[in-house]
Deep mutational scan, measured.
Amino acid sequence: TYTWNTKEEAKQAFKELLKEKRVPSNASWEQAMKMIINDPRYSALAKLSEKKQAFNAYKVQTE
């Protein structure tokens, strides 16, 4: 089980997950979700809006 003390740690864990699963920077949210949804870190960020925000930040960083 994973635990995160801060929102920032949770966001980092979520981005690490995207990186580890090699989600391409041109992937849509739907494509990315299919690649990461079974990992416990997918739940790091509770709100869908937070997940999408972190995903978009990840995409910008990896382009």
Rank of each mutant, 00 (worst) to 15 (best):
A57R: 10
K47I: 10
K19V: 15
A13W: 03
E8F: 08
S28L: 07
L18V: 02
Q12F: 07
T1I: 15
E16Q: 10
F14N: 00
A27D: 02
K51E: 02
L45R: 00
Q12Y: 06
A13M: 07
A27N: 04
E16F: 06
E20I: 04
V60W: 10
K21R: 09
E8I: 05
K34H: 11
D39M: 01
Q53G: 07
K7N: 06
P40I: 10
T3S: 08
K19P: 00
T3N: 09
Y58Q: 03
Q31T: 14
V23R: 01
M33L: 11
Q61C: 14
A46I: 08
K47W: 06
A32H: 00
E63G: 09
K59D: 04
E20H: 06
K51Y: 03
S43N: 14
K51H: 02
K51I: 04
E50F: 03
F14V: 01
W4L: 02
V23F: 03
V60S: 12
S28Q: 07
K19R: 12
Y2T: 12
K11C: 15
F55E: 03
E9W: 03
K52H: 06
L17W: 01
K51A: 04
N56W: 15
T6F: 03
A54N: 03
L17Q: 01
K21G: 03
E30G: 10
E8T: 06
K19W: 15
A46W: 10
D39V: 00
Y42V: 02
E63R: 13
T1L: 07
A10T: 03
L45F: 05
K7G: 06
T62F: 14
K34M: 13
N38L: 11
K59M: 07
A13Q: 05
K52D: 03
A44S: 09
R41W: 02
E8W: 09
F55Y: 06
A27H: 09
K52Q: 09
T1D: 15
V23A: 01
T6E: 06
S43M: 12
R22W: 05
N5H: 09
L18R: 00
S28R: 07
S49C: 11
F14R: 00
A10D: 03
Y58R: 01
L18N: 00
Q61T: 12
T62K: 09
Q53K: 14
T3L: 12
K47E: 14
E20R: 03
F55M: 04
V23I: 09
S25A: 13
